[in-house]
Amino acid sequence: MPTNLQILLDHRPTDKVSPANFRFVETPVPAPGPGQVLVRQTFVSLDPYMRGRLSDAKSYARPQEVGAVMQGGAVGVVEASNNPRFQPGEAVVGMGGWQRYWLSDGGDLRVVDARAIPIQAYLGPVGMPGVTAWYGLNTIIAPKAGETVLVSAATGAVGSVVGQLARAGGARAVGIAGGAEKCAFAVDELGYDACVDHKSPTFAADLKAAVPDGVDGVFENVGGEPFQQALRRLNDFARLAICGLIASYEGAPTALPDMRVFLVRRIKIEGFIVSDHMSLWPQALTELAGHAAAGRLKWRETIREGLEAAPQALVDLLHGENFGKMLVRVD
């Protein structure tokens, strides 16, 4: 009989996250009861927000429960169903967490088309990261044609979509990424006008050269020194969408810069959590799916094999060792 491998949070990290914070258990595969759906998961998603949920500090989302299956997005195929909304064999996406099988009441499941778009894309450019990019760019930065948008983590799951949407709307897109390979991918494959390597000893000068007319919008995923340098390049009335600060998620300080820039340049700065804006998800997902199916949206993935790889994959994500969206293939 097949068993359900599950990964639980064993104890909260007191410093940096380690695979030792998690433990593995095997349980019988559950049978769906009335109204329930059994999903065999194929990919689970690794995302920076997970680091915050490992803490019990008050935040925008409830902390991950100790002793429970680690939560997170997943895609899979309906194995059995007692819910008329879902049929065996259908591809679905939801918050299945780090486990091989997921028993759902169907309330948080969505059927997706895995024929025109690869199923794992619903965890990336046609999922939460894509909607995050769409929302922050379109509603906060709202770039006009010809303006310059600067995107940190430019080849990541969110940043790669931001850059392409900005270019499609007529803006000039400049990325910040870690390493020559990522910067080349940003320009050659994603269509960025330029990309600057934040690991370069000449990063500050390189960034200045890449945005000779300044920056009108910043989509911030990282924080740290790249963000400090970006603030020095802002034009009057620039808009800043603060999506993430991954540089500080493992304990590094998050220091505010000289606040005068926000006043003198009359800057709009807004932090956002995409789950606060669920009413816009259908519109965003429809647009993103159309771009992906037509080949207008490109992305890259780092895929680790086997569910057992999830804890180390999260550690690696937090240290920038992914290229594009970080995923774990369950089997």
Results as ranks from 00 to 15, higher is better:
Gly191Ile: 08
Val111Trp: 00
Ala133His: 07
Ile140Pro: 00
Gln120His: 15
Ala209Gln: 13
Ala177Cys: 11
Ala157Ile: 01
Gly127His: 01
Val151His: 07
Ala210Phe: 12
Val215Ile: 08
Arg115Leu: 14
Ser152Ile: 09
Gly156Glu: 03
Trp134Ile: 12
Ala205Trp: 06
Ala153Thr: 00
Glu147Ile: 06
Gly146His: 05
Val215Ala: 00
Asp193Gln: 14
Leu137Ile: 07
Val158Cys: 12
Val196Phe: 12
Asp206His: 09
Asp213Met: 08
Leu137Pro: 00
Ala184Ser: 13
Tyr135Leu: 15
Ala153Trp: 05
Thr139Ser: 14
Ala173Gln: 00
Ala209Tyr: 08
Pro212Ala: 02
Gly127Met: 05
Arg115Gly: 11
Gly146Asp: 10
Arg115Asn: 15
Gly214Phe: 14
Ala153Leu: 02
Val149Cys: 13
Ala145Met: 13
Asn138Gln: 15
Asp216Cys: 06
Gly214Arg: 13
Ala209Glu: 12
Pro212Ile: 08
Ile140Lys: 04
Ala177Met: 02
Leu123Trp: 08
Cys183Glu: 13
Glu147Tyr: 09
Thr155Glu: 03
Cys195Asp: 12
Arg167Asp: 01
Tyr192Pro: 07
Ala209Trp: 00
Phe185Ser: 01
Pro201Gln: 04
Asp216Pro: 00
Glu181Ala: 11
Thr155Ile: 03
Leu150Ser: 07
Ile117Glu: 10
Gly217Glu: 08
Ala154Thr: 04
Pro129Trp: 02
Asp216Ile: 08
Asp188Tyr: 01
Ser200His: 00
Gly146Thr: 04
Val211Gln: 05
Thr155Asp: 06
Leu150Tyr: 07
Lys199Glu: 03
Thr148Ser: 05
Tyr192Met: 08
Pro212Tyr: 00
Ser200Asp: 11
Val112Met: 02
Ile141Lys: 05
Ala184Arg: 15
Ile140Asp: 07
Glu181Gly: 03
Ile119Ser: 01
Glu189Tyr: 12
Ser160Asp: 00
Ala157Lys: 06
Ala184Glu: 14
Ala186Lys: 09
Asp197Met: 07
Ser160Leu: 01
Thr148Val: 13
Ala142Lys: 15
Leu165Tyr: 01
Gly156Arg: 03
Gly124Ile: 12
Leu190Asp: 03
Gly163Val: 05
Val218His: 10
Asn138Val: 05
Ser152Phe: 02
Gly127Trp: 07
Ala121Ser: 14
Lys208Arg: 14
Thr132Gln: 10
Ala205Phe: 09
Cys195His: 12
Ala121Tyr: 05
Ala142Gly: 11
Leu190Asn: 08
Phe185Gln: 02
Leu207Pro: 04
Cys195Gly: 11
Ser160Tyr: 00
Gly127Asn: 02
Glu220Gly: 07
Pro143Lys: 09
Val174Asn: 06
Ile140Thr: 09
Ala114Asp: 15
Thr202Lys: 12
Arg172Glu: 04
Ala171Gln: 02
Asp193Ile: 13
Arg167Leu: 02
